Simulated assay, not measured.
Amino acid sequence: MIRNQKIIILGPAHPLRGGLAAFNERLAEQLTAQGNDVEIHTFSFQYPAFMFPGKTQYATGPAPANLRIKRSVHSMNPLNWFRTGRAIAKQRPDIVIVAFWLPLMAPSLGTIAKMIRKNGHSRIIGLVHNLIPHEKRPGDVPFTRYFVRQCDAFITLSREVENDLKQFTKAPVAFAPHPVYDSFGDPVPQETARKHLGLHPQHRYLLFFGFIRAYKGLDLLLEAFADPRLQAMDNLHLLVAGEFYEDKKKYEPLLTPRVQLIEDFIPNEEVKYYFSAADLVVQPYRTATQSGISQMAYHFEKPMLVTNVGGLPEIVPDGKAGYVTEPSPKAIADGILRFLDQPSGVFSNFIREQKQLYSWDHFTDTLGSLTQ
């Protein structure tokens, strides 16, 4: 456990929205509760509008009341990188945790980290969600190498990213599973959740949750859902809750009357209703490292169907927390049928036990091992 340290987290946070912001804010809460002085430095400017595929980068709700969040980083302004790095260096934080998920951010985050290290005191820990992007672009490798060189140690959320990092550096690398996302409220009774969302109380619902991009395989799930064996089940429905980060047109021919599409970013206060209403959370990804959706499902104690890619099978043991299938429509349909043939609640005990392993205490203990 980390105690009595001055800590700065560098990465997305309110008013930016999304899983990375939620992760950094929850981590800051945990470290603060353990007796540390914590401040988040987030972006005043994250992505140019033409590079952001969603409707907005910003949350509509209030900032977390118990956190100190400073909007100081401009991802595209080198003068800002030097200014921000020098300002943080003067604060002499004991630990700086730098969230990394995209090579595009390497110049800004890497330069700020480089400036901070010049104070000879701060230890820089890279919190690497993803090292090699799902959607590759020119410059990914040199940008990533630049960022990696500025860190003293790294923590990853999947074994796959841990292995990727070891191809770039000999610095210490620790793995800790993505903790449970417990910041979206407690589970509510399924009947209550369905009433809130206007869903039928007796139907069965599959849930695809989160932003929609090609690597997440929504088209694979829609093709699986069109399987005649599933279409024969009149009471089976699919909820797709998430904002399109690519052209919706390619999905439209696959939509059927029993696919309910909520094509918008789901506010934090509404998340509990979607997960609580669902019978099965489906992640039909083509590629993955880890997924915060799995940890949301654990928090709401929902079984999952995931594909056999990246770190997903590490988190969802086949036949215990749900099912692992190959990323193809038939295999996904077969997995859904396997689930529907099981008695209700068959995975509940394992999921309740397993989610105890994904605590924030365990994550910060692992983080603390890198600060020595």
Rank of each mutant, 00 (worst) to 15 (best):
G345F: 13
G311W: 06
K355H: 09
P313D: 12
P343S: 11
G335H: 00
D318W: 03
S328I: 09
P329G: 06
V309L: 06
A333L: 12
K320G: 13
I336T: 01
K302F: 09
S328W: 09
F300E: 07
M296N: 08
S328T: 06
I351F: 04
L312R: 08
F347M: 05
P313Q: 11
P303G: 10
G322K: 02
K330C: 09
E326W: 10
D334R: 04
I336K: 01
E314Y: 06
L305S: 09
V346R: 14
I336L: 10
P303D: 15
S348A: 06
K355D: 14
S348G: 06
A331F: 11
I332Y: 00
F339Y: 12
D334Q: 05
V316S: 02
L340Y: 03
S344L: 03
F350P: 04
L312M: 13
F300C: 04
F300H: 07
M296G: 09
P329T: 05
E301Y: 00
A331G: 09
T307N: 11
I332G: 02
G310I: 02
P327R: 12
D341H: 08
V316P: 07
M296C: 04
E301A: 10
I315L: 14
G311P: 14
I351Q: 06
Q354N: 04
L312Y: 07
F350G: 07
L340W: 02
F350H: 13
M296P: 04
N349C: 07
